[in-house]
Amino acid sequence: MLNIKWIGLILILLLLVVLDTFCIPTNINPFTDFKLSETILFSIRLPKILTAMAAGIALSAGGLMLQQLFKNPLAGPYVLGVSSGASLAVGMVIIGGASLPFLHIFYFQSISIALAGFIGAFVVLLLALLVSYRFGYSYILLLFGVIIGQILGAFQTLIDYLANPTDLKQFSLWNMGSFYNTINDSLYILVAFVSFGIIWSFRLMKPLSIMILGNDVAYTLGVKTKKVSLQILMCTGLLTGVVTAFCGPIAFIGMAVPNVARMMYKTANFKKLLLFNVLVGAGMALFCDIIGNLPFFNFHLPINVSTALIGGPIVLFILLKRKY
């Protein structure tokens, strides 16, 4: 039973990778036109696949950690305003930093964008933690996220308003989310940051699994709950911040995937749950890319359109099915 789930998941994931590599948005056949296929494969398709998988992995891992930490199945990087925090910080660096010459040096711009995403995400997460300490793990936290998102959105609008038309268009497109903006250095940095964050998150899973007993009881079992909570926030900030920086604020993957994973693979072993969860996340991101690029659309949909169309109903289902 257990193995069937893993094998099925891995097969589906492989199928999605192959489909997204060779057929989306148009078929390429490496056997007939090798030169053209090679170019498309290595400069467009593979970066896209890697980006989508890194984003799916990072967002679903971040979502799982936030849901467990805040004991709220509706928590997620987007809902809590974390993505908005990252967006604003990245916006300030891109638009404000354009005048700083050192930002144009190779690698430096990508790294500063990634760091800005991390800092923006982490600050909002820290505020969310303070709110949860004060009010408990309740709907207030979700409302906090919505309101913070609105406030940060207002600043974002202000930046948009002040930006020149070229920057504005780029910024708006970025806001809709895309797996196609990462090339060369930004792809390496994305993959490096996400790998580091994922290794870190695996190390946090054992204490996090004890914290299902409540923070007080977990503390009396030897878990340094405050330290672990802070590390969870930093790790989530890193994972979601860097993805938001390079792919835009992507909704629903972080919230929906952990719920699906938990329901499909019920376990108290959180390391296994995290692994299952990130594989579902990677698959979900690829699936959303495929849906957004189906040949008959004639153009590719922004990723947030497909994540909302697929993730939205899942989240609604969970919300309505929940016992209160």
Binding site: K71, Y137, I212, L213, G214, D216, V217, R262, M263, K266, T267, A268
Partner: peptide, 11 residues
Amino acid sequence: NAQKIEEAYIR
């Protein structure tokens, strides 16, 4: 303590 556990999917 009397705090309720919210987790659903563990044995």
